[in-house]
Design a protein around this nucleic acid. Structure first.
Lengths: 233, 233
DNA sequence: AAGGCAAAAAGTGCATGCACTTGCCTTGGG
DNA sequence: CCCAAGGCAAGTGCATGCACTTTTTGCCTT
């Protein structure tokens, strides 16, 4: 091959391609419905089609892309209905994690959850969107880990990835940070006092609200999948 | 290529390989920890290594096989702990499906659930293990569909597949059929009267019991992965 | 002008070859 | 006899080529 790889990171080339493409989908750089041409991707990343093909296969296995035999791959396009089902699932999964966390988190986990949560209050005051988003991700990850169930952790993380492209929307809502923090607060409080049922309910409600916020924006998306095709080349 | 494929079914060769290998794993013909040699599999199915590689990649993406870079693939070996986490997840997922089913099943769905369930009582009396197993699978599928949530459906089905190799164990338990039917009965009754909470609890308990039964047998499995290797060629 | 057909273009799917990595085994030294 | 280093065999990872499928385009017919 020609020389160094653009992404120097670990694993085989195919693995790197999985991460690279998944990343572009999750961050919204590649839009739902957009065509994923093997040759173009291969050229774009300076590898042969083989690792690209493998990556597309794996991504289709986890549902991030859709593959029609002999007809190429596209970024998975989710119907309004499927999107709703994913958000609903996410709410249930988060509820499970919160419930388990309330019952199972170690002392250290509880303490650092609370500490970080309190620290994030400052980000809300400052209106630091970016930083808060980073914290928010970490907060939810703590819940997933706190459930002490690796499989639920996997399911939740995967679902979260698939929802990521549609959650960016909520960024724009005014007062989101304060509201989010208050909802987190309900979850943290419930967990700290070991109230599994309350923690579950609070987590479910939290996601549901995000869901409704996103749905508004998502509704506009499916309108323009045809456009994005030509727009990208 | 040489001619007809041994598996004549739909899709690309790679897809067929995914199904073929997954099937052998799920049915226990390939045991956890067993080596998956690309060349051997290719020869076994009379295809080149390429579709086999793609299949292994996809199966590893969904967690059915484990792939170490440059070191080959093996049937995913689940630790006792991870197995427990999967069963626990399964219980929660089934609980969700049952809850949703209680709230959302259409009249037709409720009727056929009840009808089929009652019909299966006869299989219990006859001690028809095989037939009951088929019915059992269908019964659970009805719950997954009845939840009217495609994503939960996916998650549940996938998790169920990954657990399949470990659930065969329970076959051997005496009185299993009658017990299973009674547990199903609790679920059906709760769903028929629209009692979501009760349906959820009944479904969770149902899986938990299966889980405990399987755990006994699963414990013995990790002892002999080295043997199975030579045994297979 | 619209519809249909055919040939070409584009793009996917699989096979094969070669480079490289890993694990094992041999061989020589302590 | 044990250990280290080097070499060998097995097997993975990627690139490339070709066959086949789908899609497009341009021409002909009506």
């Amino acid at each position: 091959m020609s020389g160094k790889r653009s992404l120097v990171r670990s694993g085989t080339t195919a693995d790197q391609m999985v991460r690279a493409i998944a990343d572009r989908i999750v961050t919204g750089y590649l839009r739902p419905g957009e065509r994923l041409d093997e040759a173009s991707l291969a050229a774009r990343f300076d590898v042969s089609r083989t690792p690209v093909r493998e990556a597309l296969g794996q991504l289709s296995a986890i549902g991030l892309v859709e593959r029609r035999p002999n007809r190429g791959a596209i970024v998975a396009v989710v119907t309004q209905e499927h999107l709703a089902s994913m958000f609903e699932s996410m709410a249930e999964l988060e509820a499970i994690c919160a419930r388990f966390s309330a019952e199972r988190m170690t002392g250290a986990e509880r303490r650092s959850l609370e500490t970080e949560h309190q620290a994030s209050a400052r980000l809300v005051q400052l209106g630091a969107e970016e930083d808060y988003e980073y914290f928010n991700t970490e907060f939810h990850s703590r819940l997933y880990r706190g459930a002490h169930n690796t499989h639920i952790h996997e399911l939740t993380t995967t679902t979260r990835s698939r929802l990521a492209p549609f959650r960016r929307a909520q960024f724009m809502l005014p007062g989101r940070l304060a509201k989010s923090w208050q909802e987190h607060d309900l979850i943290v409080t419930a967990i700290m006092r070991g109230d599994a049922a309350a923690a579950g309910k609070a987590a479910r409600d939290h996601v549901s609200i995000v869901s409704e916020a996103s749905a508004v924006f998502a509704a506009a998306d499916p309108m323009e999948p045809k456009l994005s095709r030509s727009a990208r080349r």
